[in-house]
């Protein structure tokens, strides 16, 4: 991907953060000057980095940060699946729900009750569970992405190190299945 090997037509990349913290995106940016190589190798389409919010063309690769905690996450994830040839679950939250999935062991009702109705810091306040039609509806639990759509590859880490993103994208740009060296596989 040093320019001479660049494919004739640049593959198109899309990224999104669902129930994540944008930490994975930050880590991608942590590639330092190699981010320029990423931009040289890929055309960046729908992504928080471009602020493009709708798919206007088919993409070769979609990177998904975060799992699904509400119906909007599911809709977006499905859109990505429909519009990307290769979908990669990136980071702990996309792969196993991560930190948001800590609520899975508690249950939705107990969570909402604690947060909005019987909150210890809101003594005397009248609680209300947010339920405006414009607010995404919470799922019964947080789902890893592969339980909702077919996922092609998984890049673990919280976040995955910049080198891991680099290795992944290099492989995908070259049309290879990413097989990361042991050193780049991390869960924390």
């Amino acid at each position: 991907m040093d320019g001479t090997e660049a494919p004739h037509k640049k593959p198109i990349l899309a990224t999104v953060s669902l129930a994540g913290c944008f930490g994975c995106h930050m880590s991608l940016l942590d590639a330092d000057e190699r981010i320029l190589d990423v931009l040289a190798a890929f055309e960046l389409h729908r992504s928080p980095l471009t602020d493009i919010k709708r798919f206007a063309k088919r993409c070769d690769v979609g990177l998904i940060e975060g799992g699904c905690c509400n119906d909007e996450n599911v809709h977006v994830l499905r859109e990505f699946r429909e519009n990307c040839d290769v979908l990669v679950a990136v980071g702990a939250c996309a792969i196993n729900g991560g930190l948001p999935a800590l609520r899975n062991e508690i249950g939705l009702e107990a969570c909402l009750t604690e947060a909005y109705l019987e909150m210890p810091t809101g003594a005397g306040a009248e609680g209300i569970i947010p339920a405006d039609a414009d607010i995404p509806k919470l799922l019964d639990r947080v789902y890893p992405c592969h339980e909702v759509v077919k996922i092609d590859y998984f890049l673990p880490g919280c976040p995955p190190p910049a080198d891991a993103f680099w290795a992944l994208l290099t492989a995908l740009a070259a049309g290879r299945a990413p097989d990361l060296p042991t050193e780049l596989i991390h869960y924390d």
Binding site: D71, R78, L139, H146, V148
Partner: peptide
């Protein structure tokens, strides 16, 4: 594409 085991309405 979509996993048949996941039912958005039910969840």
């Amino acid at each position: 594409m979509f996993v048949p085991g996941f039912d958005l309405d039910a969840s």
